[in-house]
Design a protein around this nucleic acid. Structure first.
Length: 966
RNA sequence: GCUGAAGUGGUGGAAUUGGUAGACACGUUGGACUUAAAAUCCAAUGGCCAUUAUGGCCGUGCGGGUUCAAGUCCCGCCUUCAGUACCA
């Protein structure tokens, strides 16, 4: 019995690994550490398809490789188990999201009777070397306790720009009581009042709390948010695509709501600077750089004529200030109502009204139409003192900069178009530039003219000079502006982390760590309330008893009670919003280090030992959400001493998406007759997608299978070619609706996990998107069979079925050693470069060569198993045990490459004529150039090629090539 | 529009610093084994032309250039994909 029974072998070793805790990482070890992490999945009801494990397989190969290299490897897995789909499903079916989530993870049967394999079971079948003893689930109260705790830390912190770090709010209070708020440079709301130490101490406690809230790193604020009525929730900017919700594609409107926000803008510069310290893909760094959107320029203040008001603008081109011929405010700008003149009032109001009605989507889609209205007001140029008309226009966005621009039509195309459209003059302030057709925005080639003291200067000089002049006048200051906005942190959803917050007199108070976790309450329905409150508004037991520190019935709250009065029973309402999806994933990589710790997020020793993630593999779609927010929280936690590193991840790789290959059949219009792909052009046909699993590797359709698949095909007729029905193909996203989903369980069943793992690696470069096709899988599968045969011998075919395990202690030949060592070298380099696909080719070459060499030598075959084990761990374990080892192969030392086995005495040189290779000749490697030239020139084929000509030159690169010119 | 990545056989893809283009697989064709199928094994397989073997020409999106030598470097285009967008 020595056929390659992959199903038995794989089940056996998966059981062994689980029972022996083979992959449990130790928090104390003499070995160097290595932390390999995958982006943990959201456990959806649809289960895993073959695209999901790609990154996990790559990271698993790497983790196993590192173990062979003697590292103590942390390779954990968990679930990002809060999220919208479970909630939507709960709304539809009434099932508790916790129940469906559990089934999606652990498997079972849902209430509709659908069998769900479960993520855990599916992953186990692929043979990952995860340390499951460290599993985390974001929806587990013992986990989200720490998410709530981090929120409290943010609430208790403020950002000090002078120290360039977050500090405790208690220190801010100390500063306020000794010097007020005029000396500090802190990240805070734009509308904080100035006060002295005396003022501070005279403020009421409530007033003090309100002020502090304006400085906290998480704060409550009336914010204009993206409200999605269909989903009943607020969406972050990155959850909106083309003006509609990313999920579902529903319209999104602007709405003002009181929301928790995260002061991520305080970290804008550090998030930017940190990118230089981490090894991440350039496109991903670029995406984050753009998202943060740093621009350097100046803030300039324009006095409104005959008014007390001032208009502040941000410009990246202060050098063009003398070209300012009008100003434009966003229609939503606060000053619009104040400065509009009586005559213009009606027109302005109508315009503001019309703009507010246009959805974000319309405004974005309609970039071409120029519209605006004159307010009747004028602003005074800070240098020339000229009166400049103030307009409003929707090309200026309220959310960027100050929501106002100084319009320089000669230097900015939008200002130019606006000026042209309304017949305004366009003064030219550029030396020798024609602006009759379009604006001139080229900074590098700018020479300023008609600009008083800036004349003759280039962009750099003029900018420096004008900022100096503005600062002297008190009319402006050099400024750096970021596109990044503070992140809204409240969601009107059920299935997320509850905030550890209750409200006393309308002001937020935190619950102490010792009383956490604050459990998600039970509700009857998962929808918002009729009065528009979030789902938690339906909870009946959702008030905080500050005396007994527990959650109690809402009925006990006495809303009108004044603090300290007899009616104040210390019971207050709890927050009704929940946290967004990214809350639980921002610091999860640290919880894996010490997942069962009940005292802290992770112990100092664990944090010290594991540091940060050495290798993180996941999709690029998280570039501006998870990966940016995580960096922000980690920097914050570092500032406050809760973490010892200020970046979560050293090296990151984005795996490409595996696309589906849909199978198409062609129905002859108006019939139930289907024509094979090659003949479809002869008919009028419609394309129809059918289950891709009904087509084989040669695109031949299983007709009987199709008839059984869906009733409409039961009596279908087929027009065949060569007796076969060949399907067409379309590459698109893997999705149930296209019937192109391939389940890894089925592949494991049919070919084995080792085949699946190797095949996914063999498909192509990890980072690249590529279509799944079953076509090539047999090649990888037969490779594993050949590998198996290499270790066996006997009837009926040499080493074939029924053979017995056989390796010999014979001394390996030179060829054997050469094959082995070139394989060691190549595979090691490939893994280090994440070039997994070429490793698989290398294994194939090695096994083909060793088979041809009839190699049975233990000295070769033993190290070969270790080389293959990261990719195909089950067969490797089995062969390793057959080789007589009692321990798992997991920590066997990676074979050492020895150059000496690859040293050659001669080389088959390619001989080229004018760069074109014509023939090859064998020459010793230690031959001198002169002798080589003589040997080549004497060769009969050289004479034939030259045909009597005398070569002009002979280029000889020893060890490489010979090229004859002439 | 801007930013980034990529274009190589029928297909997935190799070619690490400029040095034998198409490794390794799939598919296809022919052959062996078999009652048959599956499995397995052997051979051929970039295109075109010619042939008794030998051989010749073309060929890495397109057009130029540098070089003894270019898929690889430089200049100019085209196409595809991804991200982003009235960002002042």
């Amino acid at each position: 019995m020595s056929k390659y029974h992959f199903n038995d072998i794989e089940a056996k070793w998966q059981k062994y690994w689980a029972e022996n805790g083979t992959f449990h990482a130790q928090n104390q070890s003499d070995k160097p550490k290595f932390y390999v992490l995958d982006m943990f999945p959201y456990p959806s009801g649809a289960g895993l398809h073959v695209g999901h494990p790609l990154g996990y397989i790559a990271s698993d190969v790497y983790a196993r490789f590192k173990r062979h290299q003697g590292y103590n490897v942390l390779h954990p897995m968990g679930y990002d188990s809060f999220g919208l789909p479970a909630e939507q499903y709960a709304i539809q079916t009434g099932q508790h999201p916790a129940d469906t989530t559990l089934v999606n993870i652990e498997g079972g049967v849902d209430k509709q009777g659908n069998k769900i394999a479960g993520y855990r079971h599916q992953m186990d079948k692929i043979g990952f070397s995860f340390d499951w003893s460290r599993e985390v689930r974001t929806s587990d109260p013992q986990y989200y306790k720490w998410t709530q705790w981090i929120f409290i830390q943010l609430f208790e912190s403020w950002y000090d720009y002078d120290a360039d770090k977050a500090r405790p709010v208690s220190e801010l209070v100390t500063i306020f009581s000794s010097e007020g708020n005029t000396t500090i440079h802190a990240a805070c709301d734009a509308d904080v009042i100035s006060f002295s130490a005396e003022d501070w101490t005279s403020f009421s406690s409530e007033k003090q709390q309100e002020i502090l809230l304006q400085y906290r790193l998480t704060y409550l604020a009336e914010t204009e948010v993206n409200w999605c009525p269909e989903l009943g929730t607020v969406l972050a900017n990155d959850e909106i695509v083309n003006g509609v919700s990313e999920r579902g594609g529903y319209p999104v409107v602007r709405k003002k709501m009181k929301q928790w926000s995260m002061r991520i803008t305080a970290y804008a510069q550090r998030l930017l600077d940190g990118l230089d310290t981490i090894d991440w893909p350039q496109p991903l760094k670029d995406t984050q750089t753009n998202w943060i959107g740093r621009s350097e320029g100046a803030s300039v203040v324009f006095q409104v004529k005959d008014h007390d008001e001032k208009i502040e603008v941000f410009t990246t081109r202060p050098d063009t200030i003398f070209g300012t011929s009008f100003m434009t405010l966003a229609p939503e700008h606060d000053l619009v109502a104040k400065i509009t003149t009586q005559e213009q009032k009606a027109e302005v109001e109508a315009y503001v009204e019309a703009t507010s009605k246009r959805s974000e989507r319309e405004r974005m889609a309609d970039v071409k139409t120029i519209s605006g209205v004159f307010t009747g007001a004028y602003a005074l140029h800070p240098f020339s003192g000229k009166a400049i008309p103030v307009w409003i226009g929707d090309y200026v966005l309220a959310g960027y900069g100050t929501g106002a621009v100084m319009a320089v039509p000669c230097g900015d195309q939008r200002d130019y178009d606006f000026a042209k459209h309304y017949g305004m003059e366009i003064p030219n302030i550029f030396e020798g530039i024609d602006i009759s057709e379009e604006a001139f925005a080229d900074k590098e080639n700018t020479i300023i003219a008609n600009s008083d003291f800036l004349n003759g200067l280039n962009y750099k000089e003029a900018t420096a000079k004008v900022i100096e002049a503005l600062e002297e006048k008190g009319a402006g200051v050099g400024k750096i502006n970021y596109r990044l906005r503070d992140a809204v942190f409240s969601r009107q959803r059920y299935w997320g982390e509850p905030f550890p917050v209750y409200y006393k007199n309308g002001l937020p108070q935190m619950i102490d760590l010792e009383h956490l976790p604050l459990h998600l309450p039970e509700v009857e329905k998962y929808l918002p309330t009729e009065s528009g409150e979030p789902p938690l508004g339906r909870a009946e037991v959702w008030a905080w008893d500050t005396k007994n520190n527990k959650v109690v019935s809402n009925d006990l709250v006495t809303p009108s009670a004044v603090e300290g009065s007899d009616e104040d029973n210390g019971i207050y309402p709890l927050e009704l919003n929940t946290m967004p999806g990214w809350a639980g994933s921002s610091c999860y990589m640290f919880r894996y280090m010490d997942p069962h710790n009940r005292e802290t997020l992770a112990s100092q020793e664990a944090l010290q030992y594991w540091g940060n993630v050495d290798l993180y593999i996941g999709g690029s779609e998280h570039a501006t959400s998870h990966l940016l927010y995580s960096r922000f929280w980690v920097k914050f936690m570092y500032d406050r001493g809760h973490l010892l590193v200020d970046e979560p991840v050293k090296k990151l790789i984005n795996q490409g998406m595996i696309l589906g290959t849909s199978a198409l059949i062609y129905r002859i219009s108006g019939t139930n007759e289907y024509v094979s792909s090659g003949l479809k052009d002869q008919y009028q046909v419609e394309e129809i997608r059918v289950d891709v699993n009904l087509a084989n590797a040669s695109s031949e359709l299983d007709l009987e299978g199709l008839r059984k698949w869906q009733p409409q095909y039961e009596n279908a007729k087929f027009v065949l070619e060569d007796g076969k029905y060949i399907v067409g193909h379309e590459v698109e996203k893997m999705s149930k609706r296209w019937f192109n989903v391939v389940n890894p369980d089925d592949v494991c069943e049919q070919y084995g996990a080792d085949t699946l793992r190797m095949y996914e690696m063999f498909l192509g470069p990890l980072e690249q998107a590529k279509p799944w096709s079953t076509a090539g899988i047999t090649g990888v599968h037969s490779f594993l069979k050949k590998l198996w045969k290499l270790y066996h011998q006997g009837s009926p075919l040499e080493g074939g079925e029924g053979g017995v395990f056989h390796v010999s202690d014979s001394t390996p030949t030179k060829e054997n050693l050469k094959t082995l060592h070139k394989t060691i070298k190549k595979v090691q380099e490939d893994i280090e470069n994440f070039s997994f696909n070429t490793s698989v080719s290398t294994f194939m070459i090695a096994v083909n060569e060793l088979t041809a060499q009839k190699c049975k030598s233990r000295e070769i075959l033993e190290p070969l198993v270790i080389l293959i084990s990261p990719y195909a761990p089950h067969i490797a374990e089995e062969l390793w045990s057959l080789l007589g080892h009692e321990e798992s192969i997991a920590t066997a030392s990676f074979p050492k490459f020895e150059e000496k086995h690859l040293v050659e005495s001669s080389k088959e040189y390619p001989v080229s004529f004018n760069g074109k290779m014509r023939f090859k000749m064998e020459l010793p490697l230690d031959m001198s150039k002169e002798d080589m030239e003589a040997a080549v020139m004497a060769h009969e084929k050289t004479l034939q090629q030259l045909d009597g000509r005398t070569p002009k030159r002979v280029i000889i690169v020893p060890g490489k090539i010979i090229n004859i010119v002439g």
